[in-house]
Design a protein around this nucleic acid. Structure first.
Length: 281
DNA sequence: AATGCACGCAACCGCTCGATA
DNA sequence: GTATCGAGCGGTTGCGTGCAT
């Protein structure tokens, strides 16, 4: 049983793509459009796995892909979104015009994540290598963003489906199935992932950055740990403290230490980003 | 010049999900 | 209800490159 492999692995090219392969794939997709990845290699005459074709197209050949040189604005946005969403790279990438999930994931792992792991956020750089990695980034802007912080305030590192809502007010409503787990969520009147709601509601327009900065990130709700009841029935505690809106009367405090009203934070105006000519997704 | 090492990135892999028959 | 397909996601791997010794 089980599913058949996406393609027969025999006789397929692996590794780096050649210019000719890129050309063939691009021309095929330009003619026939995206999709049907499983059958694409055979029809296009490529000795590649369909998944490989899809990845190559989405991460490299697709029009509008921006490569290299993650700007400071983009980096700050990545950090903010990562705080909010965890390792949901596709969601993060969806809010960064021209960037792919793979690129952002790589950038995080090789730059931001390492900085945080090294505790750079709270210390002075003293090595050439660190200096090189930092690219003159002013990490003292994130005095509270640390690996410790990641443990304590990160939403979740992997997309999780929740099957049952057992909030106190809803406990007993066992058929409230929304995923694989049962979650106690302050915003459980909505059966959808609140993070996705947040992303869905966040329009990628000229107000995006300002909207993001104005987001009601519930630092204060960090006190409210959500409880997950796994399929085996064992409850476990999971940090989902950013999944629900908090009272509008609360003081907004970003987990990395910035206050929404922190005048010391030098996030550039949205117009700077907008006027740079990006193609918004 | 030769060698070793670290890093960054492209690509691969395994898994999951929704749709469909 | 089950099997399969098509697609997507996130973690990991491995290769090419640049730098240090």
């Amino acid at each position: 049983m089980g599913r058949s492999p996406c393609c027969s692995k025999e006789g397929l090219n692996k590794g780096a793509w050649t210019a000719l392969e890129d050309k063939i794939l691009t021309e095929y997709i330009n003619t026939h459009g995206e999709g049907k990845w499983r059958h694409l290699p055979k029809r296009a005459g490529l000795k590649r796995c369909g998944k490989s074709c899809r990845l190559r197209w989405l991460n490299y050949l697709r029009p509008g892909i921006k490569r290299g040189n993650i700007t400071n604005d983009e980096e700050e946005l990545i950090i903010r979104l990562h705080n909010l969403l965890g390792n949901r790279w596709s969601l993060i990438a969806g809010r960064l015009p021209g960037r792919t999930d793979n690129e952002i994931k790589n950038y995080w792992n090789t730059n931001i994540g390492r900085k945080l792991q090294n505790g750079v956020a709270r210390s002075t750089l003293n090595t050439v290598q660190q200096d090189r990695n930092l690219k003159n980034k002013e990490w003292h802007h994130y005095p509270n963003y640390s690996p410790d912080h990641k443990v304590s305030c990160l939403v979740q590192t992997k997309a999780t489906r929740w099957t049952k809502d057992i909030t106190p007010q809803n406990e007993g409503i066992k058929n409230n199935v929304i995923g694989d787990n049962k979650i106690v969520s302050p915003s459980s009147e909505n059966n959808k992932d609140p993070v996705l709601d947040f992303m869905a509601d966040l329009e990628m327009d000229g107000n995006f950055f300002s909207e993001l900065l104005k987001m009601d990130l519930p630092e204060s709700s960090c006190h409210n740990e959500n409880k997950i009841v796994e399929d085996n029935g064992n409850p476990s505690t999971v940090d989902k403290r950013y999944l629900s809106p908090k009272s509008s009367s609360d003081t907004t405090q970003f987990p990395w230490g910035d206050s929404l009203y922190d005048t010391n934070f030098d996030f550039l105006p949205v117009t700077t980003f907008m006027e740079s000519g990006f193609d918004w997704l």
